[in-house]
Design a protein around this nucleic acid. Sequence first.
DNA 1: TTGTACGCGTTATCAC
DNA 2: GTGATAACGCGTACAA
Lengths: 351, 351
Amino acid sequence: MSTIRDVAKIAGVSIATVSRVINFPEKVGIETRKRVFRAMEVCRYKYNALARGFATKRSHTFGLIVPTITNPIFAESTRGIQDFANEQGYQVILGNSDYQYEKEAKMVEVLRERQVEGLIITTTNLKGETLKSLLDDRFPFVLLYSTVRRGPISAVGVDNFLGGYRATEHLIHFHHRRIAMLAGAFNCSDRSFHRWHGYKRCLKDNHIPYDPDLVLKTEYSLARGREGVKSLVSFKNPPTAIFCSNDFLALGAMAGAREAGISLPQDLSIVGFDDMQIASSVTPALTTIRQPAYEMGELGAKILLHHIGNKVYKPVHKILATRLVIRESTTVVRTMKKEFYKTKAMSVHGA
Amino acid sequence: MSTIRDVAKIAGVSIATVSRVINFPEKVGIETRKRVFRAMEVCRYKYNALARGFATKRSHTFGLIVPTITNPIFAESTRGIQDFANEQGYQVILGNSDYQYEKEAKMVEVLRERQVEGLIITTTNLKGETLKSLLDDRFPFVLLYSTVRRGPISAVGVDNFLGGYRATEHLIHFHHRRIAMLAGAFNCSDRSFHRWHGYKRCLKDNHIPYDPDLVLKTEYSLARGREGVKSLVSFKNPPTAIFCSNDFLALGAMAGAREAGISLPQDLSIVGFDDMQIASSVTPALTTIRQPAYEMGELGAKILLHHIGNKVYKPVHKILATRLVIRESTTVVRTMKKEFYKTKAMSVHGA
DNA sequence: TTGTACGCGTTATCAC
DNA sequence: GTGATAACGCGTACAA
């Protein structure tokens, strides 16, 4: 590979001039410029961005750590991040933590050694050493998908508590009282934990006793959703509705329920969380809590770049709005159907 | 940030020794080693992998270009790539082409400037300048998802022709004769083109006339699948089955068909291509051509690393097996149901 | 407008 | 076992 030295020699100028042609062409005489460009062609010169990064101490790269890119919701936010980053001349190195703190910590280590200028992390452990040490070193980073309202860490996420609350409320509105929850393991994500809190609180506010047997903590996957629902419906007093901590779990639960001979949504209402693309195209279309994933990623990248660019660090916390998207996977509890529509008619009259 | 120079000074050794402690600890006396390690702690030394890359001309990075990471099938293969790469001490920079050649070309440019050691590309244009110039420069790269059986370019993919053939054959076996195809635009991917050829050929082999009106070339998305099916079923002589070029299109088609009041699979059989995770969990579960995405990615990365490591370049072509996964979205054409099962019974006797 | 010279953090090749 | 020193390719003062 030829370098600016080769180009300089061929063009009969100094390396500084070549460098200028690359970075500030207008600062170089038109004739010299042309000569340099031709010289570049002659020796098939290719710019070395890594060398620049080394010289300027700016890699124009940042690291992104997600639980796993195979979850479409993370793919979505990743696109948001990439699109903005690329536009700004940044590239992103992607790593998966599989919801394991050790992998996350290792990845942070590796990426920092690689001189990424900043990190976007969907963390598995909000309280871990990793984030603390990032903070100590004043290393630019922002959390994604986390509900952090204050403190020194920048984050963009949604109100998971409220999301859980709304999902549950929607079910209660449909007269469900035996409402189960398929939750992601709490040690994997504070998100699931907050959603569960929202669920619990909503139950309480509506004077529905909390039954711990109705809460299954499991891994975020189709397979676990499938299994979970089967165990749930085998109870002597099974739930009439399930709130799932993410759409994978919900979609898996729908499949599992059908395998168990349950008809949806008549015999079992299901609500998810995320609103991944496919959620609106399945049957019954999934009722779910929508997270604006792409926007979240975009915003996260924007904030990170801002941190990188500014000397003074002022953490920013953004809570984006979620939205309950009511589709077909939830309906009025069977025994209450007549009742429900009567009430409905009345309330319409009342309005 | 402190450097090996600082460490050397504190430990009272030369920078060469510090470097040796980092790379070949056993080559350094135990006492000196300890002193160096302590010095590292003192000045909170962090290794700079970028500087190493600069010095050794090995970035331990490679680039990955996919159409879009939001398509779960590409997320799957990406995981295969990452897992293998990380294991080998490599990181991957991810870029999206959105099936646009210009974006792909630009991305290749950017990544090469970044000194990635190799490239894995799911290309949009097999014949373009980009790949040619990569070849000219003897730059290590491998194609993913492409059917390339010979020539100078390394590739791992599946037999798209055969996949298209088998999908169509399956439909014909179910007595369908009006078989439409929802295809990805041919200028976006040779994959769709080959699948279409398989479809056409199978029709021919079974003496079914090819009707160009039954082939819709469109973008790979849920929305386009939805629209496509609606236009298809509005024909005076509508198809009884549709072969979709990928699962997104198929899933979209299922949703669209239902919106058009068609019951699945009785009135319309649908087969997809990819077998993305969700395909087995929808209703009706999607019959599709399975591609081993994760393995494909893994193998691609393996081949790339091999190319990077070896001086002599010998292209390798791997065609992985696809598999027709018959689930619930395809069935015997309505009018032929009785006929079909009679034949079936006979053939059982015959066997 | 153009050129000289140095620095960035590491590896690598010699000597000792 | 250890140290001195020259690369690596670029940016950037500063000088001309």
